Amino acid sequence: MDYTRQTRFSDPGRHHDRLAALPADPAAVGAVVRNLTVHYRASGIDFPPDRLADIDARWAHRMLDLDRERFGDVPFDVPRPAEQRVVGCCRDSALLTVAALRSGGIAARSRVGFAGYLTPGYHVDHVIVEYHDGVRWIATDTGVDPAADWPVDVTDVPLGPVGLHTAAQAWQALRRGELDPWAYGTGPGEPIGGPWMIRYYLAVELAHRLGDELLLWDLFGEAAEYADRDWADLPAEMPGDLSHLDETAGLLVAADAGDHAAERELGARYAGDARLRPGPSVRCVSPRGAHYQVRLC
C-alpha cells in the first residue's frame, strides 16, 4: 500500500492545499492538529449535543469543514478556543495528522492499540500515527503535548506494552495468557474493555492499516453481532474457530518487523475475507448515545 496517498477517510478534499502548505514536519503538524481538535472526554468540557455530534464526523474533509464553518479561512495555526474546536478523540487527531503528512508527500498511517503511558497501571485504547522518515517507521502521538511529563518519548513511541501495545500484540499476549484483559479498555472503572474489545481492536487495527480508518465505534463484521451488548456480559470464553484472528495478528506483528511477504498477505486476506473488513455500511455505536447504520460508499 502506498501510504503517501490519501484514503477515502483521510482525503481532505478542498482543504488539500491548506494542509499541504503546513511544514512537512510531524511535530509542527501535531501542534496544528492539537489546535484544531479537542477531546470529547479528556478535555473535561461538557459539550452540548449539537457540538458533541462532531465526534461522528468520520471523514477528514468533514472535520476540516467544521473548522471552516467556525473560523473561515483563518490559518490552521491561529489559536482556536478549546470550546470551539472540532470535538473528537485520538482517532481524529491521528487521522488529521495522517491527512496533513500525506498532503506533504510523507508516508503516514494510523496505528491502533492500547497505550501504556497515559494512565498508570492501565492500557487505554488509543490511536497514534506512524510516519516513514526514509529509513524507518516512527510512531508519534500528536494528540498529546510532547512537553508534558510522559513516561515514554511521545515523539518516538515504542510499539509494545510500555508504549502503544498494538491490538495485534495484545491479542497474542491475551491468547498466551500473559495479560489481564480487564486492564485494557477505555479507562479504569469504565464498562468498555476486556477480551472482546481486544478482539475487535485487532480488526480495527487491520482496517486502519489497509486504508479504512474507521471511527473506533464503527462496528463491522463479527463485532456487529454484539454491537448493542454490554462488553462485561459477553462470554469469557470466545466461541468458534479463532484461527483467522491468530493468523491476522501474526501477520501484523511480522509486517511490523519488516516482513514484506506478511504485508502482502495481509492485503490479500483483507480483500478476500469478509470477516476482516467493513462492508458497504457499518453500525455506528456513538458515545453520544446514537446507534445507527452508516453507508461508507
Score class of each variant (00 low, 15 high):
C297S: 13
G250W: 01
A274K: 02
Y131R: 05
R209I: 10
P81R: 04
A100N: 04
S103V: 06
Y131K: 04
P79S: 04
A254S: 14
Y122A: 02
A170V: 04
R62A: 14
G289Q: 04
R199M: 13
L219V: 10
D180I: 05
V162D: 15
D92A: 12
M1V: 14
H260T: 13
L96N: 08
D54S: 09
A236T: 13
G134Q: 07
E247Y: 03
V29P: 08
P12K: 06
V294L: 15
Y3G: 00
D54F: 11
E265Y: 00
A207V: 13
V162T: 15
D218A: 11
H132Y: 06
V74N: 09
M197F: 11
P120M: 02
T97I: 07
R91S: 10
H165F: 12
W59P: 07
A28Y: 10
D180C: 11
R91M: 14
R80D: 06
D25Y: 09
A268R: 15
G240C: 04
S103W: 02
L164Y: 08
L101A: 08
D156R: 12
P188Q: 06
T186L: 15
V162I: 14
D273W: 01
L36K: 10
A224S: 15
D46L: 14
P287W: 01
V124A: 12
G240H: 04
A255M: 03
A115K: 04
V152A: 00
I138N: 03
F47Q: 10
V78N: 07
P195A: 14
T186V: 14
D256F: 01
D259N: 01
T4Y: 03
R5I: 07
P120Q: 05
G121M: 00
D241H: 08
A173Q: 12
G272L: 00
V86P: 09
E237P: 05
L174D: 11
W137D: 02
Q84S: 11
D218V: 03
R176H: 11
R288A: 12
R176N: 09
D233A: 14
D65H: 06
G160E: 04
Y131I: 04
A257S: 13
T142H: 05
E130G: 03
W231G: 07
G104D: 08
A99V: 02
D25S: 10
A236R: 14
Y226R: 15
H244F: 08
A268W: 02
I45C: 10
G193F: 13
S243N: 01
D77T: 14
V154M: 05
E83L: 12
G143K: 00
E222A: 15
D46E: 15
A261T: 00
H61R: 15
Y226F: 15
F76H: 09
Q172M: 12
L202D: 04
P280R: 15
R51C: 11
G116Q: 00
G104K: 09
A167V: 03
R275I: 10
H16P: 01
W217D: 14
L96G: 12
A27M: 09
A255E: 02
L276M: 01
A262Q: 03
A94G: 13
G143T: 03
L159C: 11
A99W: 05
F114G: 02
Y117G: 00
T186M: 13
H16R: 15
C90H: 10
D125I: 00
H132T: 04
R275Y: 05
D56C: 07
A100G: 06
P278E: 01
